[in-house]
Amino acid sequence: MPGGKAFPVLYVTDVQRSLRFYGLLGYESTYQFPLEGDPHYVGLDRGDSSLGIANAEWPEAQLGISVGTGPRFELFVYVDDVDAEVERFRAAGYPILQEPATMPWGERQAYLADPEGNPVALATPI
């Protein structure tokens, strides 16, 4: 099977709002369309990890399917210090779904919600 990069595309109702959130996680914009003005799509990278952020109108316009209102995915992100990151996101006004806790599998983990209400796990190996 041919190799190549694969990454999820997140459908969002407000591209700029999601860019601010994922920017706090260390994702950096690498591409946007259209190239000028308000983007409908943005490619993001964080180390070896990539995400696409697309306006939620895209799947309906292109595929004839509607995006649901409930959580549509969970993202798991390793960070240097879960407790510090949770406090940084709390100070920025993002909801914390689960406070940091030490898990039996050897990680300190917490959950927060992205602007669309999707759970984002933050974890640090112990």
Rank of each mutant, 00 (worst) to 15 (best):
P2R: 09
P2N: 12
G4A: 06
G4S: 07
K5C: 03
A6P: 00
F7H: 13
F7Q: 04
P8G: 07
V9F: 06
V9H: 03
V9K: 05
V9G: 00
L10G: 08
L10Q: 11
L10A: 12
V12A: 10
V12Q: 10
T13G: 15
D14T: 10
V15I: 08
R17W: 01
R17S: 10
R17A: 14
S18H: 09
L19D: 10
F21R: 08
L24W: 07
L24M: 15
L25R: 00
G26A: 08
Y27R: 06
Y27W: 08
S29W: 00
S29I: 04
F33L: 11
P34E: 02
P34M: 01
P34V: 01
G37M: 02
D38K: 14
P39V: 01
P39E: 08
H40K: 09
Y41A: 01
V42P: 08
V42I: 00
G43R: 11
G43W: 05
L44V: 09
D45N: 05
R46T: 08
D48T: 11
L51D: 11
L51M: 12
L51W: 11
G52S: 10
I53Q: 05
I53D: 07
I53A: 03
I53V: 15
A54K: 02
N55K: 02
N55V: 05
A56F: 01
A56S: 15
E57P: 00
W58R: 06
W58V: 14
W58A: 11
W58I: 12
P59W: 05
E60A: 10
A61L: 14
A61V: 12
L63I: 03
G64Y: 11
S66W: 02
S66H: 13
S66R: 15
S66I: 00
V67T: 13
V67R: 12
G68L: 04
G70L: 03
P71C: 04
F73E: 07
E74G: 04
E74D: 07
L75V: 06
F76K: 08
V77P: 00
Y78N: 10
Y78F: 14
V79I: 12
V79M: 03
V79F: 01
D80C: 01
D80G: 13
V82Y: 05
A84S: 15
A84L: 13
E85D: 14
V86K: 07
R88G: 02
F89R: 01
F89L: 15
R90A: 14
R90F: 09
Y94P: 02
P95K: 04
I96T: 12
E99Y: 01
E99T: 11
P100L: 08
A101G: 09
T102Q: 13
T102E: 14
M103L: 15
M103A: 13
M103W: 08
P104G: 11
W105K: 05
W105R: 02
W105F: 15
G106K: 07
E107C: 06
R108M: 06
Q109Y: 11
Q109R: 14
A110I: 09
L112K: 04
A113T: 08
P115Q: 06
E116W: 00
G117F: 03
G117V: 02
N118A: 04
P119H: 05
P119E: 03
V120F: 07
A121V: 12
L122Y: 02
A123N: 08
A123G: 13
T124C: 06
T124D: 04
P125H: 07
P125V: 02
I126Y: 02
